[in-house]
Design a protein around this nucleic acid. Structure first.
Lengths: 335, 335
DNA sequence: TTGTACGCGTTATCAG
DNA sequence: CTGATAACGCGTACAA
């Protein structure tokens, strides 16, 4: 039933070497034999066995994509764009969702490596542990295949990073808000990851540059939980802590702010300005639609794959590429 | 650098056959040699070459997952659950996003087949063409490997289906709405796919059962475009066509209805009841939160993988499994 | 319980 | 331009 290269060679009256040459587009084949072989291939419906090919070439043109959770809005987009770009370059993508537990991440990275993938893409800042010792598993893996980080950074040989300049982005909106006269700003954030800390630092920097002191209640870790965001704002509100803007590190949290405003009948953006992050589908679907920072996932992914292909064909590629975020103005801010 | 089974056998002072037995958990190995081999494997960091193994066994324990767009809320969830379940069964997932063009779907299915995946999972009703002739490529593929459909159905040998009973679900909410006295209901839907038509027919059936006649303006195809939903409702509203509920085939469209209500200052659910579909993140994030039909993606995926594993180990498995949707009551309805 | 030897289907090298 | 043949690394009959 399943044909192999010998069947083709027999039927075409040539050697398997010639068949192989035809398949792989080797020029040293006469037009006549080439046509004959091609016609036989079509006739008997022959497809080269990828395992045998993989065995010889030691590659199956497959990239491992790891993320903590591919159903997350941001990561789902990233996975989509990565797969699309990889496929455009004739690479398959093996998806692997790890969750956030470090041991599980290690285990799956090891697993992917054992599958002989040609490279591994780690998507999202959740793969970079704050304690750099905990990142050694990534450096170790980089000894075998290129490791590409999308929106995370680890220093090391054979590790490549593409990231969005989160700090600047948050700095920039906060600065804009302050310049527009809004100075009591609450910053709600999802995580203490490297990226999370960067954003926070952008928020602080904007205050520093304007000589504003930042009340400790104005920054709050809420994880990825819009309820917690809403509750925290409610708490501040009931304590009469004044605030007239909420900047967030994720649209989810901005949704919480919106729900808070809705519950207390606050006008957005009249009484309260709200800024989301990631420019996800949520930003469009809420009412009013969220002003949100576009972290440029698509560009991030395109760049990542382009860099990877550069590595594969021996080009000189940058280890670290920054992409600048855009602020997408919608209806929760008046600047 | 990269060790093979011969290196292990040499270092352990046994034959490669023994090493192979140890790796594959064959019982016919003395405890002593087993330990020795294991220690050598650990020492030199040996990992079996999956290509060579694949060549012999003619499988790499890999499943192809095809979907039109893995960044879609529903499909992203499905992909996540499928990957999780497959991995729990020691299978890798190759992701392949096809878009909606039939020729591209065919091409990618062929591609996946040529990669010698052990099965292919087609996720979403978008893979079932309304003209059954156009589904022959699926039947053809099923001659090589099992084809699993998640929320779609094609009749044929070696094709297995798990789906949510969409028709019943829409029938049921519509019926509930009507019983609560709301009879002017607009149904907005995304697609004329098989599943889409089923939902529509559930909507019609509810009217039929209550002896209500259904105005043609009350059903409208809007694709996956909340703006179009909003525009259409606006159009009806301005034409004074009365309606006090909107049932949709997707939360996206319910978002459009919500935006319409917001714009015209309609109270939801007082003036207008709204029902979404898929119980996506959107349903929670809007204000008021959407009553939505939970199409049970997770169950669908778990069942699909369970069925697939059943096929692999020769069990007798059902060709078609139905899963009943749940109505998740939130704040856009008063029933 | 262990080892030998072959098959799996390619690609690549080298000789012609 | 073409063909023979050696890897590639593993699993497994079969032999011992």
């Amino acid at each position: 039933m399943l044909m192999n290269i010998y069947d083709v060679s027999k039927k075409a009256g040539v050697s398997i070497a010639t068949v192989s040459r035809v398949i792989n587009g080797n020029t040293n084949v006469s037009e006549k034999t080439k046509e004959k072989v091609l016609s036989v291939i079509k006739e008997i419906g022959y497809t080269p066995n990828v395992f045998a090919r993989g065995l010889g070439l030691n590659t199956m043109k497959t990239i491992g994509i790891m993320c903590t959770d591919s159903s997350d809005l941001y990561l789902a987009n990233a996975v989509y764009y990565l797969e699309r770009e990889l496929r455009a370059n004739d690479y398959d993508s093996i998806l692997c969702c790890t969750g956030t537990d470090l041991e599980t991440k290690k285990k799956y990275l090891e697993l992917l490596l054992s599958k002989r993938v040609d490279a591994i893409i780690l998507v999202g800042s959740k793969f970079v542990e704050s304690n750099d010792n905990d990142n050694s598993y990534i450096k170790e893996a980089a000894k075998k295949v290129p490791i590409m980080l999308v929106n995370g950074h680890v220093d090391g040989e054979n590790i490549y990073t593409t990231l969005c300049n989160d700090e600047d982005a948050i700095y920039s909106v906060t600065d804009t808000l302050i310049k527009s006269g809004i100075t009591d700003i609450v910053y709600l954030y999802t995580s203490n990851s490297h990226s999370g800390l960067n954003k926070l630092s952008g928020f602080r920097k904007a205050h520093f540059m304007h000589n504003l002191l930042l009340r400790p209640e104005y920054t709050k870790l809420c994880n990825k939980d819009y309820r917690r965001a809403k509750e925290y704002l409610t708490e501040l509100y009931e304590k009469k802590v004044p605030f007239n803007a909420v900047v967030t590190s994720d649209d989810y949290l901005a949704v919480g702010a919106l729900k808070f405003a809705y519950e207390f009948g606050l006008n957005v953006p009249g009484d309260l300005s709200i800024v989301g992050y990631n420019n996800s589908i949520l930003a469009e679907c809420t009412e009013p639609a969220l002003t949100s920072i576009d972290s440029r996932v698509e560009s991030l992914c395109i760049t990542t794959v382009k860099t990877l292909m550069g590595i594969f064909n021996g080009s000189d590629v940058p280890n670290k590429t920054y992409i600048t975020a855009n602020i997408i103005k919608r209806n929760t801010t008046s600047f």
